[in-house]
Design a protein around this nucleic acid. Structure first.
Length: 271
DNA sequence: AGAGGTACCTGGCAGC
DNA sequence: TGCTGCCAGGTACCTC
């Protein structure tokens, strides 16, 4: 579920419900995520007041006085806020109890997610330290992309999805951004012009901003037990639309597998 | 250094 | 209906 727009929407939903709350309990039903949930998480968090919920790339950062809880939702993770006592469903692996009143519950069927604790500056954690700029960072420019691509003969879609180049562009929005930029997903990254990278910088920001705006409406209620993430599917121009006519009016959307990931593009308006 | 592939895990769905 | 195979929004890590 989580591409960056959903992670950011989750952050915006959780922060006002949880910030300032004090941890009054931790339940770990299944610690087997991509890495084990720390065995002493209860001892670590008990009594600590949540200062705020930040985000770096697709990592959520729950900042406490003694350190930061780093959470990644992987492919299938979600976080919700529920009243204490709400019965857990399958794949509800971790609960953080706040003020004896509400739970932040992590559900992750595929268990590709992460929940880690660091007492260091979270951004210095090995998993975060080597990440590229945020899409809205002033460092994310056409010149930067062009320089990064100089020795990269891989497909531009692979390049764009590399979190060490820029964070937050997942499989769906890579297809969407390349379509908006008129770039063929298989074009070698080092054969894309600076001007085209300038366009790409703009459309990456644009498509993510639009999706966050949309996610804000479909994901606004984090307190329902049946809360479901929004998929933004009705806003997508190419993703999962193979065979449909492209908005350009001249081509039909095609499906390709690039780097073992499904990719969608219009062969007429993307070169 | 970069490219390409594999691995982690479960559920849903199409097709037989 | 029940089985099998394939697909899924991420990313670390391995080898060449």
């Amino acid at each position: 579920m989580p591409e960056l727009p959903e992670v950011e929407t989750t952050r915006r939903g959780l922060a006002p419900l949880l910030s300032g709350g004090v941890i009054t309990g931790v339940t770990v039903r299944d610690a087997r995520l991509r890495r084990p949930v720390p065995a002493d998480l209860t001892r670590i968090l008990q009594g600590q007041r949540l200062e705020d919920v930040a985000r770096r790339a697709k990592y959520l950062l729950f900042r406490f006085p003694g350190g930061t809880l780093i959470v990644h939702l992987g492919m299938s993770g979600s976080l919700r806020v529920l009243p204490v006592g709400t019965a857990p469903q399958p794949h509800d692996h971790v609960d953080l109890e706040f003020d004896g009143a509400r739970l932040m519950r992590l559900r992750d069927p595929r268990r590709f997610g992460l929940m880690l604790w660091t007492t260091d500056v979270a951004e210095a954690h090995p998993l975060l330290a080597t990440l590229g700029p945020e899409p809205w960072d002033t460092a994310f420019t056409a010149e930067y992309l062009h320089a990064q691509a100089a020795r990269r003969s891989a497909a531009v879609k692979i390049f764009l999805m590399d979190a060490h180049v820029v964070v937050g562009v997942g499989n769906i929005y890579a297809s969407e951004a390349l379509h908006r930029a008129g770039l063929h997903p298989l074009r070698a990254a080092n054969r894309v012009s600076g001007a085209r990278y300038a366009k790409l910088v703009n459309v990456v920001r644009e498509v993510l901003e639009e999706a966050i705006g949309h996610g804000g409406t479909t994901l606004r209620d984090f307190t329902r037990d049946d809360g479901k993430p929004g998929y933004f599917r009705n806003k997508l121009r190419v993703y999962d639309r193979a065979g449909a006519p492209c908005d350009c009016g001249r081509g039909e959307i095609r499906h390709l597998v690039i780097g073992q990931r499904s990719s969608y593009f219009c062969p007429r308006c993307q070169r």
